[in-house]
């Protein structure tokens, strides 16, 4: 359940009510930042957060995201190498048969 989507906080709109403007792919919506406001609100501008039903629910940890992606890319590259090797062997086999 629970549709959530990454958005970037671009502007604090109401300091007292902890409201800010979030940008999702060029679409803007005012959201509550109550759940991620653990310091000065202005620090949130530029931060990415997971947006759900008008609330920024969790700050996205850029380092963790990068680490996950790196692991995934490493897998992808290994896969490419394996495929390249397989293709090379196939070509050699075909070459030998020819």
């Amino acid at each position: 359940m629970c549709l959530g989507i990454p958005g970037q906080i671009v502007e604090i709109t109401d300091e007292s009510r902890l409201m800010a403007m979030a940008d999702v792919s060029g679409v803007r919506r005012e959201v509550s930042v109550a759940c991620i406001a653990d310091g000065p609100l202005s620090d949130l501008v530029g931060a990415w957060a997971l947006i759900h039903v008008g609330f920024a629910m969790s700050r996205i940890d850029e380092d963790e995201a990068a680490a996950t992606l790196e692991a995934l890319h490493a897998l992808g590259e290994v896969q490419e190498e394996l495929e390249a090797m397989a293709a090379g062997q196939e070509a050699m086999k075909e070459g030998a048969e020819a």
Partner: peptide, 12 residues
């Protein structure tokens, strides 16, 4: 368009 994707992602 990215914005249309954005609307779709937000509203499912």
């Amino acid at each position: 368009r990215p914005e249309v994707k954005g609307v779709c992602e937000i509203l499912g």
